[in-house]
């Protein structure tokens, strides 16, 4: 089974790679493109550590094939900050201690970014509902929720 040539856009940059159809988007990002910010926690859709934005939609990249990325746009945690500044969510996760070990953090950031895109001013319940596909074992979620609330407030003002 031959490898497939894929052209895709990752964080605004056009990239090409060869992938076996069985490689997940997560694998391709990490192993072929060396974008290791996106993490693997379960490889079956349940932990959200591998969250990326795929074709404008929040997905678990372990549940997408790499070859499906052909002609699509992918956004990962590596694309959130600009050279000048962190994304308000990244800043808020730092200020509110929205992480401990940090393995879940890229997934939470991507997921929260999509939340604020669709609901700029979410309630605590809406945040908790949206983030339920992202598991964090360290924080108990409290400070993550507060970080998202803080970022929402900062982004509203901006």
């Amino acid at each position: 089974m031959s490898k497939v040539h894929v052209t895709t856009t990752v964080n605004g940059d056009e990239v090409e790679f060869l992938a076996e159809p069985r490689q997940s988007l997560l694998e391709v990002l990490r192993d072929e493109l060396k974008l290791t910010g996106t993490k693997e926690g379960c490889n079956d859709g349940n932990c959200g550590a591998c969250s990326v934005v795929f074709d404008g939609t929040l997905v678990a990249s372990c549940c997408v094939l790499g070859v499906e990325a052909d002609g699509k746009k992918v956004e990962t945690v590596e694309g959130m900050a600009t050279p000048d500044a962190l994304h308000p969510l990244q800043q808020a996760f730092l200020e509110e201690t929205g992480m401990q070990c940090g393995i879940c953090t890229p997934g939470f950031l991507i997921s929260s970014k999509e939340l604020l895109k669709s609901k700029p001013n979410p309630s605590e319940e809406e945040i908790r509902f949206w983030l339920a596909n992202n598991l964090c074992r360290c924080t108990g979620y409290d400070k993550i929720v507060k970080a998202v609330q803080k970022a929402a407030a900062v982004m509203e003002e901006a």
Partner: peptide, 23 residues
């Protein structure tokens, strides 16, 4: 006091190297 953690920035940008991030 509550300073921002020293290893924080690389953890929010995805730059931090965890066990599986070595090639």
């Amino acid at each position: 006091t509550t300073p921002i953690r020293k290893d924080g920035e690389e953890k929010v940008t995805g730059a931090a190297l965890f066990g599986d991030d070595i090639h």
